[in-house]
């Protein structure tokens, strides 16, 4: 079980709370791409809001954090730390702080 923290606007859009729990394929690597695949399957309204529909590129002002580290620029296919994969720590999706 993976825990994911969503930014406030996406909670509203998905009609869910701050944290959602996802069940990923236990035999596959736990990566940001895998997390987002399951997240978007569970909450289809989030498709296109975190990453592009076609290219799957992260939207420029969305950030991914794991274990207090910004992993936004890592490959989305890089395995997440064990504490994320085991659900002890959440995977954070943030809207970048920008604008006025």
């Amino acid at each position: 079980m993976i825990r994911v923290i969503l930014p406030p606007h996406l909670r509203t859009l998905a009609r869910t709370g701050k944290e959602v729990e996802l069940d990923l394929d236990p035999d596959a690597p736990v990566t940001p791409s895998a997390v987002l695949d399951v997240l978007e399957g569970m909450y289809p309204t989030l498709r296109g809001t975190i990453r592009d529909h076609q290219t799957k590129q992260r939207r420029p002002m969305v950030r991914f954090f794991a274990c207090e580290r910004d992993i936004s620029h890592d490959s989305p296919d890089t395995p997440l730390p064990d504490v994320i994969a085991s659900g002890r720590e959440p995977f954070w999706i943030l809207g970048a702080i920008s604008g006025g």
Binding site: P7, H9, L10, L13, T45, R47, G48, T49, G95, A96
Partner: peptide
């Protein structure tokens, strides 16, 4: 629309009392 989260689309079938999210894929 949002600079952060892109485009989303919504539809109401009851005059704006309730809304459902619809397709946002514009290719």
């Amino acid at each position: 629309a949002s600079d952060w989260f892109g485009q989303t689309m919504h539809r109401s079938d009851d005059g704006g009392q309730t809304w459902q999210t619809v397709g946002n894929e514009f290719g």
